[in-house]
Design a protein around this nucleic acid. Structure first.
Lengths: 226, 226
DNA sequence: GGAAGCTCTCAGGGAACTCTCAGGGCGAGG
DNA sequence: CCTCGCCCTGAGAGTTCCCTGAGAGCTTCC
């Protein structure tokens, strides 16, 4: 599959280049716009497959950009980035038609997952995102986890951690890597967060044989049979 | 594969030439820069495959160098070298998009392993993470050691020692070399550490024929069949 | 055969790492 | 306002690892 083309719109250059680095690393072609006007111009010119659009911008904010897009019949899917204190209703009302939104701060993996989800919904995408290992199954679409056929209720953080481990099954990931990918990009985790959540997951999904979550002392954790 | 090209950036000449020697010995082409300004110039000129970048430098520190790189769209992967007391958050926020960091003091092999890992992630490289000799197999990704098909649990130090021996299979390595490569570069090992760990490894992976670990009296150790 | 040098093994204290439990803060929903 | 679930922290216990020291075993050379 040729990578989809994304447009990142944010007035903060730092975040923009961070996102560009991360997303192009995930196989996307990425272009940037620093404000709403530039965004509209580039959407028209490049016709990206999806726009990552910051809501809070001077002049033309994200909503307004989206409104103008739709008013001329453009239905390019949009993924809004909103601040934590943004009124959710307002966002929700605008995220119809296949769009979605994500609150800052978010983890990069979360963003990538959302982008894929939106592209899947809007495009004719195949890819039913199911990850599995032995009798552990995880469905990203349904946001569902089952072990040996029975549903397991997990919290958002537990879910993200499990997904990261599952995607990297067979490979050892360090606690630092886990923090990088599962927690917010500006989360300051110097405590025992990862250990704690590994513990939660173990209790919820690893009570039965075979054990899937393994500790590699001094290195990290890994998910595998045996 | 032709060796990748690296750029080492550090203001300390000693460390620089040490790294140059070590890395070029591992098949890399190595160039050096003494400060941030020179680094930016050389990255532009030489277009290295990866930059080993000290964070703590006068004038332009490592972060700033990286930021400037990204701001002009340059996505050369960066491996940061940080002091032990560096605030990890600061580092983490900047190590997105396939970059990585390593805390001083580190062992040379650790550095080489990280470089390979980053190059593997970023480039389209095939990933040679498996080393083997006879029925001894070592998988760096899974951090797994097996002898004759059965898993062997080894501690981090044992693992590093075994990897060093395995990478240098057929060649005799002295105890001094082992100390240099497997232990921290400033570890002062005048005791019987190496002998002890060779002993541990023998007990764990060399209980069966054929014996793989051989003592070359007065010289060092080697890993080979027969 | 004996001495000297090198290597192997074993045991143990201290350090590092991990697990677990309890609890406070916070926000969502009733 | 209250309750509940979720998130994170802190402290302590438990485990494993790392290195050292001492002595025995082995090899080489005299």
């Amino acid at each position: 599959m040729a990578g989809h083309q994304l447009l990142i719109v944010d007035d903060e250059a730092n975040l923009r280049s961070m996102l560009r680095a991360a997303l192009s690393h995930h196989g996307f072609e990425v272009s940037e716009a620093a404000d709403g006007v530039e965004a509209l111009r580039m959407i028209d010119a490049d016709q990206p497959d999806l726009v990552v659009l910051d809501v809070m911008m001077p002049e033309l904010d994200g909503f307004e950009v989206c409104r103008r897009l739709r008013s001329v019949g453009n239905r390019t899917p949009v993924l809004f980035l909103t601040a934590k204190d943004e009124t959710e209703d307002r966002v929700r009302g605008l995220t119809l038609g296949g769009d979605d939104y994500l609150q800052k701060p978010f983890s990069l993996d979360e963003l990538v997952a959302r982008i894929h989800a939106v592209l899947r919904r809007t495009g004719e995408g195949p890819a039913p995102t199911v990850h599995e290992l032995a009798d552990l199954v995880m469905d990203d679409d349904a946001h569902l986890v089952t072990r040996a056929g029975v549903d397991v209720a997990v919290s958002p953080t537990e879910y993200n951690l499990l997904r990261y481990l599952l995607v990297n099954q067979g490979r050892v990931v360090s606690k630092a890597q886990i923090l990088d990918h599962v927690w917010d990009y500006d989360f300051d985790g110097d405590g025992r967060v990862v250990e704690t959540y590994i513990g939660y997951l173990r209790k919820k999904i690893d009570g039965t044989e075979p054990k899937l979550i393994h500790t590699i002392r001094g290195v990290g954790y890994t998910l595998r049979v045996r």
